[in-house]
Design a binder for these strands. Structure first.
Length: 652
RNA sequence: GCCGGUGUAGCUCAGCGGUAGAGCACUCGAUUCGUAAUCGAGCGGUCGUCGGUUCAAAUCCGACCACCGGCUCCA
């Protein structure tokens, strides 16, 4: 058989040859350095037989792909170490049941069903054992078993592995990897790939946490214990990663929210129910004003609706069967049930229905900063990102089927406009599709409604050239979803906003309009939320900017720092002048040294620090120091006001 | 909700069977200073809550609550 090398050369190999054989054929140096290969674009180890006429590139420990190999092997090494830990406690190896142990970004994990619960204090001894296994340089080998033999290995011993094998397609090869021997080693059902021996794993890893994880991600199935680890090629990469994590922690919106006095959450009010402090409320109000103006420009009409609604509204909408458990319990009054509203759409539908509609008024765009309440599971609550009460930047666009694509294009363009103004460039869309096969009870059957609405959104995405990906199974019961994804400071992908196309609920409410031909027609509804919820958007933006809000959003735009008490009077004069121009300035009149005042203003992330002393008072100027910049400049008060006003107008 | 972890002053943390401490913040006093912490004094905690063990519990045990890291969920 043959393999094609990156330089175009063809290599003659024996049938069943592996990347190891190929490396050997190229040269003894490479044979020694090889750790794996890229075969037809796929990552291979040195064990797996190559396909015929494969494009082949041998990897060494210099290649970034190497990380995937040793991270995977580390998962096995960890499993072996956990078994040894339990062996010391008198358990047989098979009493430590293993589920899956994949590679993830920056590391690996293994899901384990252990005879006793694992605790954080178990991690250091496991890690120590892992280092012993690395030092022992156990060679790995790969072998394949027929299905029946593979099943025999695990039946009655490890239900997880048994299930994994049973779910493998009939024609799939069932491979195992063994490291070491019976006495000191470990064998696992695994599709690979792995490093040639445990000694080839760089020692730059760390077990980071232990967490629960449901078997196959299903809350009805057993909960396993997942041990997470991180691993890198070099010590520097490991240290850099740990440093990054520390930096990210400093930007955590919950921490900045407290430090900068933006919001608080109190048990006394209720968990998941944030309170906006004056400074945070100020910024939110600026954001709301911004959105209000933007949406006015784009033809939205603002409405107000109450926070509760009769249960009948949610029977009509069809939400109740799906979301009853996720709503606050109903309030019974005058023999009727009322729910706190978990979404605004039904209220808006009633507004639509308040009088007969003509095709001439479509698309009708109803907007509201609607506060909603959802009974989120307590374990999922996180600051403003996941709360039980929050305010959506909500709107519903009622339009005809013919208008859907065009309206979606406008929505996508509005996202672009708004996110650009907030300096957010790294975001993308995610089109969430229904999964008819696995969840027919939620999505029903595939029909023209589904096909047409998915096609309409796809077309809008293509026409705008928006960056997007697709996902299956995450649609809503009433239509496909278009989520907006961003990357948090911790590097995690998050959904910041979500839109849906709805062709079911309008019908349930009997919404209609009279078309050009005088016939009644049901509108389609686009649910859209540009900022998602102000709470979550604010949380993201806070972390994105690390609390360094631009001038136009800062609750305090400048602090005047009088050098000595005799400069206080001048500072007050400057402040009064600035306030006349609606600039938000405060005077630090504490009996502190100037250095302390500057330090505190920097820590509070105030955009401008204005120092005034004898020179300034005499010349009618201020000494301007920009946040996080040491350099200073002197400006006349009028010039400062002009400059600041311009920046505010430009939203910088 | 589930698994693991953590709860001591407003914040960051020490104390881990003998009756609670530091720094910062805050208040007061002194200082009036040129670009990231002036000095001193004072105030402040039923050690998350409830129960148990003990002569004695912040400290040991149990339950609950909240928070943190995950899993599941997210209209």
């Amino acid at each position: 058989m043959q393999a094609v090398l990156p330089d175009g050369r063809t290599l003659e190999l024996k049938p069943g040859a592996t990347a190891a054989d190929a490396a050997k054929a190229i040269g003894p140096g490479l044979a020694k350095a090889a750790v794996g290969a890229i075969v037809n674009g796929e990552l291979y180890d040195l064990f797996k037989p190559l396909p015929e006429r494969a494009e082949l590139r041998i990897l060494t420990d210099k290649d970034p792909e190497y990380a995937q190999l040793f991270r995977h092997t580390l998962a096995h090494v960890m499993a072996q170490a956990v078994r040894e830990l339990f062996a010391e406690r008198g358990y047989a190896p098979e009493q430590v049941k293993l589920a899956i142990g994949p590679v993830i970004e920056n590391g690996f994990y293994y899901d384990i069903d252990a005879p006793e619960p694992l605790h954080e204090e178990d991690l250091p001894p496991i890690e120590a054992k892992m280092r012993q296994i690395l030092a022992a340089d156990l060679p790995l080998e790969r072998f394949v078993l027929p299905r029946s033999e593979a099943l025999q290995r695990y039946e009655g011993v490890d239900p997880y592995k048994t299930e994994l094998i049973q779910d493998l397609p009939e024609d799939e090869e069932i491979s195992f990897y063994r490291q070491g021997d019976e006495r000191f080693g470990f064998t696992d059902l695994c599709r690979g790939p792995h490093v040639p021996s445990t000694g080839r794993i760089p020692p730059h890893f760390k077990l980071t946490s232990i967490a629960g994880a449901y078997w196959r991600g299903d809350a009805r199935r057993p909960m396993l214990q997942r041990i997470y680890g991180i691993a890198f090629r070099t010590k520097e990469e490991l240290e850099h990663y740990l440093w990054q994590q520390e930096e990210a922690k400093k930007r955590d919106h919950r921490r900045l929210g407290a430090e900068l006095e933006l919001f608080t959450i109190s048990e006394e009010v209720g968990k998941g129910l944030p309170l906006w402090l004056p400074r945070g409320a100020f910024i939110r109000r600026q954001m709301e004003n911004y959105m209000y103006e933007k949406e006015q420009e784009h033809g939205y009409h603002y409405v107000y609706t109450p926070h509760i609604a009769n249960a009948r509204l949610y029977y009509t909408s069809g939400h109740l069967p799906y979301y009853k458990d996720d709503m606050y319990a109903p309030i019974e009054i005058e023999g009727e049930e009322y729910y706190l509203k978990p979404m605004n759409c039904p209220h808006h539908h009633i507004i639509y229905k308040a009088r007969p509609r003509s095709y001439r008024e479509l698309p009708l765009r109803l907007a509201e900063f609607g506060t909603v309440y959802r009974f989120e599971l307590s374990g999922t609550l996180t600051g403003l990102t996941r709360a039980r009460g929050f305010t959506q930047n909500d709107a519903h666009i009622y339009c005809s089927r013919a208008q859907v694509t065009e309206e979606f294009i406008k929505v996508i363009q509005l996202f672009d406009e708004v996110y650009r103004d907030f300096g957010i460039s790294d975001y993308w869309f995610r089109l969430s599709l229904p999964d008819f096969e696995n969840n027919p009870e939620k999505f029903g059957q595939e029909n023209d409604n589904w096909r047409d609405s998915i096609a309409a959104i796809r077309k809008a995405l293509e026409l705008t050239g928006a960056r997007y990906e697709e996902g299956i199974g995450e649609a809503t019961f009433y239509g496909p979803k278009l989520d907006v994804q961003i990357r948090s400071v911790l590097g995690k992908e998050e959904t910041i906003a979500t839109n849906q196309l709805d062709f079911i609920v309008p019908e349930r409410f009997g919404l209609e309009f009279t078309n050009e031909k005088g016939q009644k027609e049901t509108p389609v509804v686009i649910h859209r939320a540009i900022m998602g919820s102000f709470d979550r958007f604010f949380a993201f933006y806070l972390e994105h900017t690390a609390g360094n809000f631009p001038l136009w959003l800062s609750p305090i735009q400048a602090v005047l720092v009088p050098i000595a008490d005799r400069h206080l009077e001048y500072a007050q004069k400057v402040a009064a002048e600035m306030r006349k121009h609606r600039l938000r300035v405060e005077i630090d009149s504490r009996s502190e040294r100037m250095n302390a005042k500057i330090r505190d203003a920097e820590l509070q992330k105030i955009p401008l620090i204005l120092v005034v002393g004898d020179k300034e008072a005499e010349a009618g100027t201020v000494n301007v120091r920009e946040r996080q910049v040491k350099a200073q400049r002197s400006l006349a008060v009028a010039a400062l006001i002009e400059e600041m006003s311009q920046r505010v107008a430009a939203r910088r």
